[in-house]
């Protein structure tokens, strides 16, 4: 019964993990948009300034990108972002759905005008908001269902064994 309950709990955790990743990505986007709007800072500085304020793994993600940009190693922001996102995905810290969104954010960076850049990021931000809303609603229902089913499955096993 404990095993079945544990399985249900793990499943709920995984669903919540995706939601957590989306929420952190949204916070990251808001920082970027605000820094561009008010301070006109270049990306490297933006990543340095908000890196420490995000939760892991995004704090390290942002700082690693900033460091690589500062080292002027010849690689573009798009390439650096892509590689770092891939590393995050491989480390399992970022679920598949969240990693896909992270790649999309990377693709929307590098516009010439600040307005164009902000609009591109706002588009992703809107998608993220929608995704967060849907997942929050679904997660509540699904978690309830999963927990109930896992308890029932556990009880069924107990009855079967008796």
């Amino acid at each position: 019964m404990t095993g079945a309950f544990g399985f249900g709990y793990a499943l709920c955790q995984e669903m919540n993990n995706v939601l957590f990743n989306f929420k952190e990505q949204k916070r990251m986007l808001l920082y970027i948009i605000n820094e561009i709007s008010f301070m006109h800072k270049p990306m490297e500085e933006i990543f340095y300034s908000f890196g420490g304020r995000l939760k892991e793994p995004y704090a390290s993600f942002a700082l690693r990108i900033a460091e690589q940009m500062a080292s002027r190693n010849g690689r573009t922001l798009c390439e650096i972002w892509h590689d770092e996102a891939r590393l995050l995905q491989k480390s399992k810290e970022c679920p598949k759905a969240a990693a896909a969104m992270l790649f999309r954010i990377g693709e929307s960076l590098g516009y010439d005008g600040d307005k164009m850049q902000i609009d591109a990021l706002r588009l992703i931000d809107a998608e993220l908001s929608e995704e967060i809303e849907n997942r929050t609603r679904e997660n509540e229902d699904k978690c309830k269902l999963v927990r109930t089913l896992s308890v029932l499955a556990g009880l069924f096993c107990v009855v079967l064994l008796i």
Partner: peptide, 24 residues
């Protein structure tokens, strides 16, 4: 040019209007 602007061309708009950008 994009690389010289640290992939942040928008941040160099004012300098761009003056015909130059500054590097580290």
């Amino acid at each position: 040019f994009r690389y010289l602007c640290h992939d942040s061309v928008y941040a160099y708009e004012e300098e761009r209007k003056q015909g130059y950008i500054m590097a580290d």
